[in-house]
Structures are given as structure tokens and as C-alpha cells.
Design a protein around this nucleic acid. Structure first.
Lengths: 214, 214
DNA sequence: ACCTGAACACCGTTCAAGT
DNA sequence: ACCTGAACACCGTTCAAGT
């Protein structure tokens, strides 16, 4: 049963629980990047033998999954009330904040955001308000996906390997003859790539669009 | 000079060029997945010694970069004319199609889409039309980013590791008491995750929103 | 029962040697 | 000049042995 209480986290052994392991792994990733997460390295960090890790986790993929869960569960999504618009806004901001807490994991978290339990609760809250306010099911599903997709794409760009400086340089290096429009707005183009102010402006525009569309 | 002609692709050696290597690597990735791209494996594929690869590519990261370039350059973006809206639509569809040709690379391509040369040409075309039609620089930058981000997020979800079946099962397994809204629209929620029809519907809604906002 | 070192089959890459 | 095998320093994981 998926809904039964957690079995006290693989107890016994040496005090350590599975979520202790996940948390230690998360710290390691935050400190030294995703590529530093190795079975050997994590075991050393925990002061245990490498193979002992396999008592908490069947495989490295499962370890990574546990780390993603730990990261996703760290910041509990707020309880959102009010209109679909207010709820969407609150949850979009919270989701972005949650993603930004662990930049090294953004790319991985972006690929399986939907089925995590905490995210489904959020979806329920937003979709519920949308339906109550007259969205058709198709409109609600599409609208929710757009908001959610916007957050994902934004954070992905924001935390991407090509930082703002790289982007600025690349735009500045463009020959103005062939790229007149892009050159003339290069400042705004870089601004728009990051920052919560820009994020919120884009989000509000998107919510306006949805409001106008339904 | 970035604008000078390419130096005939590291000539000499054994007929092979750097882009031959990249193309072979791309085929390998398409056929067997990203994890199959190893220096040893690719060399075997090409019938050369492993170390010979280092004549075409300084490091594995550089090889991956060359593969991403090959994938991005494969489908030349169409020449788009007309309004900002028509151009946005054409380029969004083309970008999606380009991403979908190599699903194994979507996650990597999603993280550095901006600075690739072909993408900058697209950006120029769309931004140019937006400015010509009265967008402010800030509006143009934000609007372009939203469209672009939408494509990215859509394809990411569409090609994500949790396929449609997984999503369907997960939604079906939700207790209806706690997730009434989500359960009642589960069909639409799954539909909206994939398919070009759904993609275009969402895109049009987004373009409508932008149109209304500026 | 719980833990773990040694060993295996892989990596990317350096280095020195082949032709 | 061009190519490449051997070797090194890593991986994840199996297996058999420690306590």
C-alpha cells in the first residue's frame, strides 16, 4: 500500500536511516556538485564502508532518486487559498524557490516533476480552483501545464551552464549588421534571463494571457 | 575570428573529419542512448583506435558539444517572414521538431539553447518583427523568452523519463477523496503532456496572451 | 545479522612507443 | 606526422568473507 505509514526508514543497522543517507548525499551535491556524488565518496563522507551504502539503497540510480526526493520535500509547498490566479502565483514562486535551492539538481528535477507527491498536492489545489472558476477540464490542464512549464524553463535557463556573463559576451560579439534587433535589445535580453523580478513579470504576463484566453 | 570560414574541419589524417566523428557519435546516441557514447565505443564504431579520437576532439566534453552542434544544425531553421506571431509560431514548431529528432539529447540541449548560432538567427528574426510591430525592448525580450521557454518545457515533459503510461497510472492511483479535481481531469492532464496538437493549442494560447498583454 | 575489503568490468585520459 | 596499446586513476557493483 502506497498510503501506509513509512516503515521507519529501514531501521536497525547503525543508527543511520535511508533519509540520513539521502540528506548527506544532498549536502555533498550542494557542496561539490553532482559529479562528486559517488558511492565511494558518499561512504567516506559518512564514515562507513562503500558497500554498506547498498544496505540503504539498491543502486546508485535509487540513491539519486532519494536525493531528488529529499530536495523536493525540503521546502513544503505553501497552503494556497484564493483564486486560481493567486494559487498559481504562490505555487509558481514556491516551486521556483525550491528548485533554486539546489542548482546542481535542477536539470534532473526538471525531468520528473509531475509525479512527486508534493507536486500533485499543488496540482490539485490549482486545478481545483480553476475548475471552480469555470475552466473546462482541457483549459485547466493546458493552463496548469503552461504555468508549470514556464517555471521549469525559467529556472533551467537561469541556472544553465552559460551564465549571464557568457550570454552578455555572446550577444556583444554579434555583428550588428546581421543582428540589429538582437543587438539593440541585448541588455533586456540578458536581464530577462534571471532574477525574481523578471521571473514575476513574465509570470504575471502569462497569467494575464491565460485569464484573457478562457 | 568567429566569422571566418571553418578551417576545412581538421584535415589530413585518415579522411575522417571532425564532423564525421560528430555525426557518427550522433548516430550512436540515437541508436543506443547517451550512456552508450563512450570514447572506446565510438572509436570501435569508427574502426579506429580509442586514442585516435583525441586527434579530433580534445576531451569527451568537447565531443558531446560537437554532437549537440550536429543535432542543432541538422534541421536548418526555416526562413520566417510575416508578423511576429507567424514567425514565433513557425520557429517554435521548428525548434520543437528539431529537439524531438534526438530525444536522448533533449535534456542536454535544453541547457544551452541560447548561444548556438542557428538559434541566434531565429531570435533575431522574431525579435526584429516584434520591435517593428511596436513591442518595447523589454516586452520583446520577455515575450521571446516565454515562447522559447514554453517549447523547452513542453519537449522536456514530452520526452521525460516518466512516459505517458506512468503518468496515467500515477493519476489513476490517486485517492479521489484527496484529489477530486485532479482525478476528474486526469484524462485531459495526460493528453496535454504530449502531441503536436496539444502543443500547438498551448502555443496559440500563449501567443494570444502575449498579443493581449502588449 | 550486519558490515565490508577485494576483485571485476567498465570509464576518461596520460604517456610512451609504434609506424 | 600520424596513430595507438599499455597503464593509471577513477567508476558502480558482485562476491565472498569478515565480525
Amino acid at each position: 500500500m502506497a498510503s501506509s505509514a513509512e516503515p521507519s526508514e529501514v531501521p536497525g543497522r547503525r543508527g543511520l536511516t535511508r533519509s540520513d543517507v539521502a540528506r548527506a548525499a544532498l549536502e555533498l551535491v550542494d557542496r561539490s556538485g553532482l559529479e562528486a556524488l559517488t558511492m565511494r565518496g558518499l561512504a567516506a563522507e559518512l564514515g562507513i564502508g562503500t558497500m554498506t551504502l547498498y544496505g540503504y539503497v539498491r543502486t546508485k540510480a535509487e540513491l539519486v532518486d532519494a536525493v531528488l526526493d529529499a530536495a523536493a520535500g525540503e521546502l513544503a509547498p505553501p497552503q494556497a487559498t484564493g483564486s486560481w490566479r493567486e494559487r498559481s502565483r504562490v505555487h509558481a514562486l514556491a516551486f521556483r524557490a525550491s528548485l533554486l535551492r539546489h542548482p546542481a539538481l535542477v536539470a534532473l528535477r526538471a525531468r520528473q516533476p509531475l509525479l512527486r507527491r508534493s507536486q500533485l498536492r499543488v496540482t490539485e489545489e490549482v486545478i481545483g480552483a480553476m475548475l471552480a472558476e469555470g475552466f473546462t477540464p482541457a483549459e485547466a490542464a493546458a493552463s496548469f501545464r503552461m504555468v508549470f512549464t514556464y517555471v521549469l524553463g525559467s529556472v533551467l535557463v537561469e541556472t544553465g551552464p552559460e551564465g549571464l556573463d557568457t550570454a552578455r559576451d555572446a550577444l556583444a560579439a554579434l555583428p550588428p549588421e546581421s543582428f540589429p534587433a538582437l543587438r539593440s535589445i541585448s541588455e533586456e535580453a540578458v536581464d530577462v534571463m534571471a532574477g525574481s523580478t523578471q521571473f514575476e513579470a513574465g509570470l504575471d504576463a502569462l497569467l494575464n494571457g491565460i485569464e484573457a484566453a478562457v
